[in-house]
Amino acid sequence: MDTITHTLFGLTLYGTVDKKEMDKNHKRAYLVTAVGASLIPDIDVISRLWDTAGQYQMWHRGITHSIFVTPLWAALLFLICAVLFKTKDKRLFFLGWLAVVIHDTSDLFNAWGTGYLEPFSNDRITFGTIPIIDLVFWTIMGIAFVLSKKNKKKSPYYFKMAWILMSLHLIIQSIQGFLIYNQYDGKYDQVALSADFVPWTYSVIVKQDDTVTIFQDNLFQEEKERYVLVSDKGADLDYLFSRRPEAKTLYEWSPFVVVVDDGKRLGLYDPRFYREGQSFLYEYIER
């Protein structure tokens, strides 16, 4: 998910806490823990500062997003709050742990993929059933915030209901995505799924030999062929990788890529992020 969504997750998690009997320091500790733990796995973005080998694509959402690291992040937030706010509430650890688990697990459901099982597996696990920016999540959380302002006594109730509704949305989206994926699986060499911003609508990206086709599909209408892309099988990828290490990383990271060699540019891109004639996830060199 994007940074805004993870921040809203943290605020919504904080909203579920009954803070009636808490002093100011405890409230601050709970807020910092809920929001901080909801964001901390993305600290891996700073690896761009020292990435000279073109490995950022692998590092981002890698070990920092591992389910096995989640208690360490929670412990770190617990210690930070103990120092800053002089709190020793053990519930802060479990709140932080839950927040990190929500971050890492929610990232599994969009097309980018997550190193959820690192260091035991380098595979990027992705279900592709939820868009990176999910406006349904935003709407549900926004309504909870509005209702909580109008009735502060029932504030935790509204936020707990928001989590229930978001969980139902994720389940419904994922079941539909699974059913659609199965309609294509077995018919093509490779299949990938990417949820669109419109609920219950998906881009299905399939590859057969050197041809990649992108369909728009849902359970309530016929599939629509949106793009047909041809990968250049004769392109010199070794030359590309030697000049642009990031291209090799993208090639290994993506389920499959489209290779382009038009005489002016040599490169490749991930077709799961192909929109309006181009993919925002690409690497190339000028000829």
Rank of each mutant, 00 (worst) to 15 (best):
S174C: 10
I175L: 05
I175Y: 01
Q176Y: 09
L179A: 06
L179M: 06
I180P: 04
I180H: 01
I180S: 02
Y181A: 01
Y181M: 07
Y181N: 01
Y181H: 09
Y181P: 03
N182G: 09
Q183G: 05
Y184W: 01
D185E: 13
D185M: 06
K187G: 03
Y188G: 02
Y188K: 02
Q190D: 10
Q190L: 15
Q190Y: 02
A192H: 08
S194L: 03
A195T: 04
A195P: 03
A195S: 02
D196A: 15
D196W: 13
F197S: 09
F197T: 14
V198F: 14
V198T: 15
V198A: 11
V198R: 10
P199H: 09
W200T: 12
T201H: 07
Y202C: 02
Y202H: 03
S203P: 06
V204T: 12
V204A: 09
I205H: 03
I205D: 04
I205F: 03
V206Y: 00
K207P: 01
K207R: 05
Q208R: 02
Q208C: 01
D209T: 11
D209S: 10
D210G: 14
D210Q: 12
T211Y: 04
V212A: 04
T213Q: 10
T213S: 14
I214Q: 08
I214C: 12
I214L: 07
I214W: 03
F215T: 05
F215S: 02
F215E: 12
Q216M: 11
Q216L: 10
D217H: 13
D217G: 01
D217S: 07
N218Y: 09
N218L: 00
N218M: 02
N218P: 07
L219A: 13
L219N: 04
F220W: 12
F220N: 07
Q221W: 15
E222R: 12
E222N: 01
E223M: 12
E223F: 11
E223L: 12
K224T: 13
E225P: 13
E225Q: 15
R226W: 08
R226P: 05
Y227S: 08
Y227T: 06
V228Y: 14
L229C: 07
V230H: 10
V230W: 05
S231L: 14
S231G: 07
D232R: 00
K233M: 14
K233F: 00
K233T: 14
K233Q: 13
G234D: 06
A235V: 11
D236N: 08
L237F: 13
D238W: 02
D238Q: 08
Y239E: 15
L240A: 03
F241S: 11
F241H: 10
F241K: 08
R243I: 14
P245D: 06
E246N: 10
E246G: 07
E246R: 02
A247S: 06
A247C: 10
A247L: 15
K248C: 12
K248G: 05
K248L: 06
T249D: 12
T249P: 03
T249Q: 01
L250H: 08
L250F: 04
L250N: 00
